[in-house]
């Protein structure tokens, strides 16, 4: 390991311990690591966005393209310029145009994306035969159909959840909670692997104990 590698390993280990120290309580070491993290992340993303967004997609594209493909770039450049007008209080309201464009575009894409990507495949996947000739399969399909329908009932806002509707909504929330429980467990396992990764760095790369 070179001298620089050793130095950076010690810095990384020190910052890891400083972040871990938050488990005890807020302290100057955590504050120090937090401010370095936030500051360096800001610098990193500034450089990243410049070299992977602004430069290739606007400046380089303007130079290399011709005709329509070149002049269409005026639209995002103009909207970006409007965002910068926030620094001039008298015309700061113009930045709303850029925000309105982004929100409208996001909502429009979201609607078609949701229909094509979620609703249509989900409805098809939910239309399952309730009896297949095999008990196991049939039970599985019945659970899937019942859970889908009752979950939809839970998200029904037009009527108070009372009586039959209330019963179906309760069954629905029960299925939701079972699904969340399974998701919770599997995600926790993934988080533990992250912790193991960090501990391995400390005990292997830094202390050479394992």
């Amino acid at each position: 390991m070179s001298g620089m590698d050793l130095l950076f390993t010690w810095i990384a280990a020190g910052l890891t311990l400083a972040i871990f120290s938050f488990l005890y309580r807020d302290n100057p070491f955590y504050k120090f690591a937090e401010h370095i993290y936030v500051g360096s992340a800001a610098a990193y993303w500034f450089i990243y966005l410049w070299f992977f967004d602004v430069k290739p997609k606007l400046i380089d594209a303007w130079i290399s393209n011709t005709g329509f493909e070149r002049y269409i770039l005026i639209v995002p450049a103009f909207l970006s310029f409007l965002m910068l007008l926030r620094f001039i209080p008298k015309v700061a309201w113009l930045s709303r145009w850029a925000i309105a464009f982004t929100v409208g575009m996001g909502a429009g894409l979201g609607i078609t994306g949701a229909i094509q990507g979620y609703i249509v495949p989900q409805v098809k996947a939910g239309m399952l035969p309730l009896w297949t000739g095999q008990w196991g399969n049939s039970l599985n399909y019945i659970i899937l159909v019942v859970s889908t329908v009752t979950t939809l009932v839970y998200f029904f806002f037009s009527k108070e959840h009372k009586g039959g509707l209330g019963f179906l909504a309760k069954v629905g929330i029960m299925f939701i909670m079972i699904a969340f429980g399974a998701s919770f467990g599997s995600t926790i396992m993934a988080r533990i692997s992250l912790l193991i990764g960090r501990l391995y760095f400390l005990f292997h790369d830094w202390l050479h104990l394992v």
């Binding site: 609703i119 409805v123 939910g126 239309m127 399952l128 035969p129 309730l130 009896w131 297949t132 000739g133 399909y141 159909v145 889908t148 329908v149 939809l152 009932v153 998200f155 029904f156 806002f157 037009s158």
Partner: peptide, 24 residues
């Protein structure tokens, strides 16, 4: 949205019944 959800619930049930009849 609620009306559309209600229609989808009916479609789920109808689709499942039709698939069951098709299979049998």
């Amino acid at each position: 949205e609620d009306l559309v959800k209600l229609i989808f619930i009916l479609l789920f049930l109808l689709g499942s019944i039709l698939e069951t009849i098709s299979l049998l």
